[in-house]
């Protein structure tokens, strides 16, 4: 059995995730200030004015009060005004396509992500390598993901690193994250994509920059296959295989070819599923 890695969004391991969490908790706090008294008031009022309570003063004529109306409209309005500020600032500060700030001089690492039925392909254009179902990233360095899908919609999500984003065929979305500390973080698809969806998980290994470079070099020198249009054609077939693979090289421009649909969208279930499954093994 694989060890499960925490995916809690309350335990951020990166600046984006930390900001997500802070906004979440702040917004929650603001609302709780109104919600909890409201709930308590509802219970107290209902109970105090219960028919059997002789002590309650009844006032059937209390059906309108301008002052009360004013308060009733302005409380939620004020809360929303405040929350609106949080929303506006937060949306801009945490826009997924906005690069993450790190110390000057550090270039972001670009990773190209292709969601397949039903696994993840990661291409490292600078390193010229690729992996399946295994994401290795350096700690402390901004990560710039470009994402697309070989077929249906998916969402790329590593909860402890923060924001998710959709991957869609025929287009590229962008997501900027940063892993602040080394560790292994669960990653997944957060958008239902069919039968193999539950297994569209991967582990994100956040390692020091040196270790990352070492790993990339190792992969590049390994005897693993290289990823070109041919291998991609096999890879994009529907499969519930959850194995991790590495490719010592990835054909440059592969990602863009998928986005531009020069490599056609992957089809769905093959006519005879079992035959292809066997062929893939």
């Amino acid at each position: 059995m694989r060890a499960a890695h925490s995916a809690s969004v309350l335990r951020p391991a990166g600046v984006v995730a930390a900001a997500n969490r802070d906004i979440l908790l702040n917004a929650l706090a603001v609302m709780i200030v109104v919600a909890v008294p409201t709930i308590i008031a509802a219970i107290i009022v209902a109970w105090w004015f219960r028919a059997g309570n002789a002590k309650a003063t009844r006032n059937e004529g209390f059906v309108y009060s301008g002052r009360v109306e004013l308060v009733v409209w302005s409380i939620p309005l004020l809360v929303i005004l405040f929350l609106g500020g949080i929303i506006w600032i937060g949306s801009h500060r945490l826009d997924p396509s906005r690069p993450v700030q790190a110390s000057p001089g550090i270039r972001p690492l670009t990773v190209e992500v292709v969601s397949l039925d039903w696994r993840w392909l990661f291409i490292y254009p600078e390193q010229g390598i690729a992996t399946v179902n295994r994401l290795v990233v350096p700690v402390g360095r901004p990560l710039r993901f470009r994402l697309t899908s070989a077929s249906v919609m998916n969402a790329f999500f590593v909860p402890r690193l923060g924001s998710m984003i959709y991957a869609m065929n025929g287009m590229a979305t962008e997501l900027n994250l940063l892993a602040a500390k080394p560790g292994r973080y669960a990653g997944m698809s957060a958008h239902y994509s069919g039968e193999g969806f539950s297994d569209m998980r991967f582990i994100t290994h956040a390692v020091p920059q040196r270790a990352f470079d070492l790993w990339a070099e190792q992969v590049a020198r390994s005897a693993t296959p290289s990823l070109g249009a041919g291998n991609y054609a096999i890879l994009r077939r529907q499969s519930r295989d959850r194995g991790e693979y590495v490719f010592r090289s990835a054909q440059p421009g592969l990602f863009d070819a998928i986005v531009a649909q020069r490599l056609a969208p992957a089809g769905g279930p093959p006519a005879v599923r079992s035959a292809t499954d066997a062929e893939e093994k």
């Binding site: 009022v45 003063t57 009844r58 209390f62 009360v68 009733v72 409209w73 929303i80 929303i87």
Partner: peptide, 30 residues
């Protein structure tokens, strides 16, 4: 951001309702 704010504005209308229901009980015999 625009759609987020538009969405949360619905809470104003709903909040008014919630408060008015509480005031409906207020002074009544429940």
């Amino acid at each position: 951001a625009a759609f987020g704010i538009a969405t949360s504005i619905i809470a104003v209308g709903t909040g008014v309702k919630i408060f008015n229901w509480i005031f409906t009980m207020y002074g009544g015999s429940v």
